[in-house]
Every structure is written in structure tokens, then in C-alpha cells.
Deep mutational scan, measured.
Amino acid sequence: MQIFVKTLTGKTITLEVEPSDTIENVKAKIQDKEGIPPDQQRLIFNGKQLEDGRTLSDYNIQKDSTLHLVLR
């Protein structure tokens, strides 16, 4: 499925993911596309910070959902 990740600069990254993917996996995909190390990434969905060990389906993230990427 496709999800979107919006950065603070207003750029939107499109990712191909599975609901069973962990947040860690998603961060690795963002690193592949953008070169941002996962330990600098914080992903936010519906105002909640997403934890590495959880999956997209844990957070009820579905296709065409938009996550927000904050760098630390």
C-alpha cells in the first residue's frame, strides 16, 4: 500500500509499505529515499509519536495515510 510522509519543509515522500511493516522498517525506507538516519527521525500520526517496535496496523495506518516526519 502507499503512504505519504510529510516533512517540515513541506516536501511529501511517497512510500510503498505493508500494514505489517514496523515503524523501524518505515524509517529505513525514508533513509533509503532521503538519506536521513533513522535515529534522527520521529514519525507522528494523528498527533501520536510512533514507536519503532510497533507496526503500521497497530496504529491503524491505512493506505494513503499521511505521517509527519520531525527531525531531532
Rank of each mutant, 00 (worst) to 15 (best):
T14D: 10
E16Y: 03
D58H: 14
T22Q: 03
Q41H: 07
E24Q: 02
T66S: 07
I13A: 06
Q41A: 15
E51I: 11
T55M: 13
V5K: 00
K63H: 12
L56D: 00
T55E: 11
D64Q: 04
L71N: 12
Q2N: 05
F45T: 07
I36G: 09
L56Q: 00
T12Y: 08
I44V: 05
G10N: 05
K27W: 05
N46Q: 07
S57W: 07
I23D: 01
N60P: 02
Q40T: 12
L15S: 01
V17P: 03
T55W: 13
Q62F: 15
R72I: 09
E34K: 02
E24P: 04
I30S: 02
T55P: 11
D39Q: 07
T55Y: 13
D64I: 14
K11R: 02
I30W: 01
L71G: 14
D52S: 09
K27H: 02
D52Q: 12
K63R: 09
P19R: 12
Y59N: 04
I23T: 11
I30D: 00
D32F: 15
I61Y: 01
I13T: 08
L71P: 07
V5Y: 02
L43S: 00
I44P: 00
I44Q: 15
E16A: 08
R42G: 07
S65R: 02
Q31R: 13
Y59E: 03
I36P: 13
K29N: 05
V5S: 01
I61R: 00
A28N: 03
L50M: 12
L15F: 12
T55R: 11
G47A: 11
T7D: 03
Q41Y: 04
E34Y: 08
M1L: 13
I23F: 13
D39N: 02
L50N: 00
V70Y: 05
I23N: 04
D32W: 12
T12G: 03
T7H: 04
Q41N: 04
L56E: 00
L56V: 10
V17T: 13
G10Y: 03
N46W: 03
K11T: 15
T14E: 06
I13H: 14
I3H: 00
K48N: 13
F4G: 10
